[in-house]
Computed example of a mutant assay.
Amino acid sequence: MGGACDGEGAPSSADTLRRQLVSPRLSSKLQQQLGDALAVTAGALPGWCEVLLRRCPDLFSPGSRARYFHATSFGVSRALHWSQEQGVAAVRAAYAEELAALDRARLEAEVSSDAQALAEVVEQVAEVEDRIGRDRMGALRSDIARVSRDALLPSAERLMGLHAGCASALEVQFEGESGFGSGVTQNFYSAVANELLKAKHQAELPLWLAEHAGIDPEGFISHPGSLFPRPLPPEAPPAVREAVRGRFRFLGRLAAKACRDDFIVPLPLSLDFLHLVRGGSLTYDALPPAGATGGVASAYAAVACELAAADAAAGYDDPAARRSAAAAAAAAEFA
């Protein structure tokens, strides 16, 4: 089932077949099993869940596979937290109308400056929230880290290196600022994503293909709408290779930490890149469309095909002769 992607954003025949293989009954049965908080936290789910999801994952809907992943991949504390959140979400939905009515009453009390009514509404909301979270067993541990906005990228790299192996949630605060909570932590991930798109960092360490070369007034790189890693030339120094690998390792840790804690790293990564990260392969259909690169991609592809054909026909044994033939072919193509 590991078919190649048929181009950026275009559904392939393999994707269509996967959707046709999904079994609603199996997906529903898996959802029921994951609703048992005790079985999830104790690791006592039926054996068929792991066997079928490992051997025949396409039989299950993406949503049910995602729920199984969250429930089984991050240890007991995360499994317990996830199970409790599922239960709390269901209970909160049952109290949705009551909470909405209390919210309207709170707004009316604030508009009319009625302190007594506002206090009563706040007390009622607290009672409802207490009923919603009554069955909770503890809370997920959080680690608080402070980073500097002035040196955000180096600070983030050090933080991810130190916290990569920690199972606890990560909460970020900025030095010299009083804000805290999930909003500030999401701002951290968004700010780091912006740093990775800045032209100065791209000039220091080229990570992305930017076909439409140029810099916008805000100092960000220009790209065709999706980011794909920039291949390194064979003569790239070892230090540069290691630095690029380190930066992508940092990006992987950042994205993993954000996804695990339900945050977003807003980088417009190429679907083809994500397909490769998942172990897939690409066909020639994944190349940019004609004219998108001003003919550069097609010219390079033509040279590569010509060199392969010439090499096969001539059977060069002398490296110097091979380099000379390659230079002549390239000069003729790009003249």
Results as ranks from 00 to 15, higher is better:
300 Y>K: 14
34 L>Q: 07
39 A>D: 04
2 G>W: 09
269 L>C: 12
106 R>I: 02
236 A>M: 05
269 L>K: 12
331 A>P: 00
249 R>E: 11
163 H>Y: 14
237 P>L: 10
187 N>R: 13
81 H>G: 10
72 T>L: 07
58 D>N: 09
121 V>R: 03
210 A>D: 01
250 F>Q: 04
129 E>D: 06
91 V>F: 08
12 S>V: 01
158 R>P: 11
173 Q>E: 07
41 T>I: 14
81 H>A: 13
110 E>A: 09
207 L>G: 02
286 A>F: 00
122 V>T: 13
173 Q>H: 04
130 D>R: 15
31 Q>T: 15
148 S>Y: 08
146 R>H: 15
98 E>W: 05
282 L>Q: 04
4 A>K: 11
267 L>R: 01
243 A>D: 05
53 L>S: 07
123 E>D: 09
203 A>M: 03
236 A>Y: 05
75 G>F: 07
178 S>D: 13
54 R>D: 10
102 L>K: 01
35 G>K: 06
129 E>K: 03
177 E>W: 04
174 F>Q: 02
327 A>C: 07
310 A>C: 13
224 P>I: 12
157 E>R: 12
103 D>I: 01
260 R>H: 01
249 R>W: 07
201 H>L: 07
322 R>M: 14
37 A>G: 09
15 D>V: 06
178 S>H: 09
196 L>S: 09
89 A>N: 05
312 A>R: 01
63 G>P: 00
40 V>T: 04
163 H>S: 15
97 E>K: 14
178 S>F: 07
250 F>K: 00
253 R>Y: 04
22 V>R: 07
294 G>D: 03
257 K>V: 01
63 G>E: 12
230 R>W: 09
106 R>E: 07
324 S>M: 12
21 L>S: 09
201 H>P: 07
15 D>A: 08
199 A>H: 04
125 V>K: 06
204 E>H: 11
15 D>M: 10
80 L>H: 00
12 S>R: 02
52 L>R: 04
239 A>K: 05
289 P>G: 10
307 L>D: 02
85 E>L: 11
11 P>L: 00
5 C>G: 14
266 P>F: 00
330 A>F: 14
48 W>M: 01
